[in-house]
């Protein structure tokens, strides 16, 4: 039987993307609930939230913002490169994105390490003895929200590693659009950009409102 023109095995490009967006919406609701918590408690303990924010290192937070925004750029470039059938360039940009993820997590490790070293972590003796209830809530929310976000960065990094392997194994001369690889890298990119967007909100709300 003659194959119908325009129909091929991996043709449901739009369907795959809709599925990815629907998943992203559930992620938005997950973080949305936490942002709601933040807003309610910030409104209730405005003064405590202001004083607690002084404890955070705004310079490290800012550097991390620049790192994640840059990783979003390299992610977009990796997708563009594969769409233009340049797998080698795409892999270079994917590694750059993964590198940014590692730098981000390294800075986060230093930040969390310093806080924990100074006795600031949920339920610590120092926190319970020397801080107001609102300040304790601030740090509880800080650790849970940046922690959940950091988990997403780790998962995103692993996903990007898998995508890099898939692109590396593309047979020579094969159109990445036809084999569905472009769909895979685009959906991984959507996830990565969402992780970036969440940090875009976390950064000013925790580090800058002092």
């Amino acid at each position: 039987m003659e194959p119908v023109e325009g129909s091929h095995e991996h043709s449901d490009y739009i369907g795959a993307k809709i599925g990815m967006w629907l998943f992203l919406f559930t992620e938005v609701l997950l973080f949305g609930g936490l942002f709601l918590c933040y807003a309610v408690y910030r409104h209730r303990y405005a003064q405590d939230f202001h004083s607690a924010a002084h404890e955070l290192n705004a310079v490290l937070g800012c550097v991390n913002t620049l790192v994640l925004l840059t990783s979003s750029l390299t992610m977009a470039l990796a997708i563009s490169a594969l769409q233009k059938n340049r797998p080698g360039l795409s892999r270079f940009y994917l590694w750059a994105t993964i590198g940014c993820a590692v730098i981000f997590l390294g800075i986060k490790y230093v930040e969390w390490g310093a806080k924990i070293h100074h006795g600031i972590y949920p339920g610590s003796e120092h926190l319970m003895a020397n801080f107001n209830p609102g300040e304790r809530l601030f740090f509880g929310l800080y650790f849970s929200m940046t922690g959940l976000h950091g988990l997403h960065v780790i998962i995103g990094g692993i996903v990007l590693l898998c995508v890099e392997r898939i692109v590396a194994k593309l047979p020579r001369g094969e159109d990445p659009g036809e084999s569905g690889t472009v769909t895979i890298i685009e959906n991984a990119g959507l996830y990565w950009h969402l992780v970036d967007i969440i940090w875009v909100y976390l950064f000013p709300l925790y580090y800058l409102l002092t």
């Binding site: 750029l73 959507l190 969402l194 970036d196 967007i197 875009v200 909100y201 000013p204 409102l209």
Partner: peptide
């Protein structure tokens, strides 16, 4: 300050969604 921070963050998010996504 909080309103401004959220407004700028939303602008950045919109730019990311519109172009990068």
């Amino acid at each position: 300050n909080a309103a401004g921070a959220v407004a700028i963050a939303s602008t950045k998010a919109a730019v990311v969604i519109w172009y990068f996504m």
